[in-house]
Nucleic acid binder design. Sequence first.
DNA 1: ATACCGATTAACT
DNA 2: GTTAATCGGTATA
Length: 196
Amino acid sequence: MRKISIDFYQRSDVIKIAKELIGKILITKWNGIETSGRIVEVEAYNGIVDKASHASGGRRTNRNEVMYGRGGMAYVYLCYGIHHLFNVVTHEEGTPHAVLVRAIIPVEGMELMRRRRGAAQFTTGGPGTLTEALAIRTTHSGSDLLSGPIGIEDHGVKVTSRNIVIGPRIGVQYAGKDALRPYRFRLAPDLVASLR
DNA sequence: ATACCGATTAACT
DNA sequence: GTTAATCGGTATA
């Protein structure tokens, strides 16, 4: 039940951090009420050299400014004008690394998440649906994961590299050869089933 | 000012 | 397999 420390986020290897985020608990707390889920799928975005990243080539805009801040903050942006996508900013200030959280397994606050999703049966298996379940919006971009309403905790579930399936990232065809890089990580399906 | 596109999703055929 | 939804970023003028 402990919040992940600042040192975890500020390391330089975004691939390693992405893998280690698998199995951790993403929590939001609004008005004293918590909802949470276990992270089961992520993607790493490797800074200015990564054509799939919003910071590709050193691009710096109002939207992605928080990526250039220190690790341990939330980067939330609007995708396709509809979906709020949540990222964990990593590395130290000045290096725009980030990890996109693509899927969670609901843990706490099922009823509230169900209501937010607006369906009798709801899923949190996509980057846009998990933010809806946890009520994360673009206005929360820049939120501090150590002191703010969005946080990540380690509840002691052990995940080894053998339990992680690696593949190319989704929806980044425009990135040329960078689209093929093995930067997508998900918990092995049998483990996902056992934790659900 | 105008046009095009995207780190997606749910509801179709 | 296809498509509408919907808006900020980016490029072009």
